[in-house]
């Protein structure tokens, strides 16, 4: 977006036209953060209003997708958590008693790729499973896996260190896998050989 020599009105217009190109991404993120469609719609519309309000703070040439996502996420926090920001990992209450033993246990009884349910059904299951896992783990998955943001971008959006993104994705995927067990499987050669 070349802004040089443009008037404020022109800059604003050119910003809004580029911003509208990220609508699907923002809606996807909002939908999985807020869990419900009406809230997601509200979040997205308000995000655009806020973004246009402060569009001059955006530096042309930088990542607009991440910039808009950050506005959306902050608004989500304002609205749904009365400014409650991230709770440090050590203090958060989620019970994780089984920890690493989880993978130990499930690797042995994975149904393999044949265990996949119909793709369409699996997509529904994934959306449902995402709703069930705590927000601090859900958000990085939605941003990185669904929104295709890098860890650096996700850490900016969520205002947390890069290492936190790493560990939350690791644990988040484990929780997600737990909810989807029996619906999707993977092939591990050695195990197959052993079964023969």
């Amino acid at each position: 977006m070349a802004w040089k020599g443009k008037s404020r009105v022109e800059r604003r217009e050119s910003f809004s036209h580029e911003a509208i190109g990220h609508l699907d991404h923002l809606y996807r993120v909002a939908f999985h953060l807020a869990k419900e469609q009406p809230e997601a719609r509200d979040l997205v519309q308000e995000t655009y209003a806020r973004a246009l309000d402060s569009f001059e703070q955006f530096s042309p040439g930088t990542n607009m997708k991440a910039w808009l996502t950050r506005i959306l996420y902050n608004f989500f926090l304002d609205r749904y958590h009365q400014n409650k920001k991230w709770v440090p990992l050590e203090k958060q209450s989620l019970a994780d008693e089984e920890g690493s033993n989880y993978w130990e246990r499930v690797a042995g009884d994975d149904p393999g790729p044949e265990g996949h349910i119909l793709l369409k059904e699996l997509n529904v299951k994934i959306s449902e499973a995402l709703k069930k896992i705590p927000e601090e783990f859900r958000a990085p998955i939605v941003l990185v896996d669904m929104g295709e943001l890098s860890y650096a971008e996700a850490s900016q959006v969520l205002s947390c260190p890069l290492g936190t993104i790493r560990s939350r994705l690791s644990r988040g995927r484990r929780y997600l896998h737990k909810h989807l067990r029996g619906y999707m499987g993977v092939e591990v050669q050695e195990r197959r050989k052993r079964q023969r």
Partner: peptide
């Protein structure tokens, strides 16, 4: 492998959702 497949499926699920 499980995480790889999970990531692929989550991305696919996302791509089906549009505004």
């Amino acid at each position: 492998k499980a995480e790889q497949e999970l990531k692929r499926q989550v991305r696919l699920t996302g791509s089906r959702i549009t505004a």
